[in-house]
């Protein structure tokens, strides 16, 4: 089997061209023989992969010609047809890290190639590669090169072979918000007891899920003139026309439905049902108004308490549904309601 092809990006310092005084060194491609840390990578790859080209660029040169240089890096990489691209590692060097992260993201986006870099977690370059490159955690100086290569090389090989990449703590990369499952050595209860003992003793411990910053929505002011308001019904309780025509999933829904209730005064067992998999559906199916109160809304409409019930309702299943999906559906439903001139919405859950 032929060796996997790797392209390596480094700065002028690691190419042994010079320090700060040579930071304006323009971009250059050296095909063949590995340069600087590329030697250590080559050794780590053994017979599995080879560095087919090294892109060298001065840190100042990159930062003064960002767009143009990034484009050149992408072109050079493209010409070499690699299986994976390695940037750095940049340790705590800020401009180098920025160059590595920016180019890694561009190569990922434009060439759809897997990319690996290595940085100290506080390097500002880490953010530029978010969600795109695997950024291996390094210490803050080049003295950590041996360790960095030891972690980056096998990860690069895995990516080149399109193998499953484990969780951040197993593979040694910085977690940038993508949760990956893996089997721990100890069961959860034992880990909980160990964490508690550390917390009691005031010793450092690492939570397995740092709390996200939570998105809280301020309620709108109350509707002043209900008698002339157009009200819509939106539910996460899964009520849909009988037979669930759009196949909304019973859990972790991948879509929402928009259905007409024009002329409908009462939801019945024969016409509507719930798609929700998170509760005993007997009562919702027996009378879907229990979840989507069309009957009551029609009464209120007749009595003149509200102006009008919107002729469309929106529905999805709020059971194990990812927050990101719910947010997307909410934004889209909101847009449609606004353009239909709806003044207020009754949101029902289960």
């Amino acid at each position: 089997m032929s060796k996997l092809r790797v392209v390596h990006y480094i700065n002028q310092f690691f190419a042994q061209i010079g320090g700060e005084e040579k930071a304006d060194y323009p971009i250059e491609l050296r095909e063949g023989t590995p340069v600087g840390p590329g030697l250590a990578f080559t050794q780590a790859f053994g017979e599995d992969a080879e560095i087919v080209g090294t892109i060298i660029c001065g840190d100042s040169y990159f930062n003064e010609n960002i767009e143009e240089t990034t484009k050149k890096v992408v072109e050079m990489v493209k010409g070499l047809k690699p299986d994976v691209v390695i940037f750095g590692p940049a340790f705590n060097a800020g401009r180098y890290g920025f160059a590595c992260g920016t180019c890694a993201a561009a190569v990922h986006d434009e060439l759809e190639l897997p990319v690996v870099t290595g940085m100290y977690p506080e390097n500002p370059g880490v953010d530029t590669a978010k969600d795109k490159a695997y950024v291996v955690v390094t210490k803050n100086s080049a003295a950590d090169m041996r360790h960095a290569v030891k972690v980056m090389a096998p990860l690069a090989l895995k990516l080149a072979r399109h193998e499953h990449v484990g969780a951040s703590c197993e593979e040694g990369y910085i977690n940038q918000g993508i949760r990956v499952n893996f089997f721990e050595k100890k069961r959860g209860s034992e880990r909980a007891v160990e964490m508690l003992l550390k917390k009691i003793a005031g010793k450092p411990y690492e939570t397995e899920y740092p709390m996200p910053s939570f998105d809280r929505v301020e309620p709108m002011p109350a509707v002043k003139d209900l008698a002339h308001a157009k009200i819509a019904l939106v539910t996460s309780g899964g009520i849909c026309p009988k037979g669930n025509p759009d196949h909304i999933e019973s859990s972790n829904a991948t879509k929402f439905g928009e259905y007409s209730i024009e002329g409908v005064t009462d939801l019945t067992e024969e016409t509507f049902e719930t798609a929700h998999g998170g509760y005993d559906p007997s009562y919702a199916n027996e009378d879907p108004d229990r979840v989507l109160p069309v009957d009551i809304m029609r009464d209120l409409e007749k009595e003149g308490v509200i102006g009008k019930l919107h002729e469309l309702f929106y529905t999805t299943v709020g059971n194990g549904t990812a927050v990101a999906s719910a947010k997307k559906y909410g934004a889209e439903i909101g847009k449609r309601l606004l353009s239909a001139g709806v003044n207020a919405v009754i949101l029902t859950s289960t």
Binding site: T207, E208, M211, P212, N252, A322, V323
Partner: peptide, 20 residues
């Protein structure tokens, strides 16, 4: 979420600083 990118819990607070 299937891609692991969504917020994992439906509620959060900074008091929950030790989670398994």
């Amino acid at each position: 979420g299937r891609d692991g990118k969504s917020q994992s819990l439906a509620d959060a607070d900074k008091a929950a600083d030790a989670l398994v």
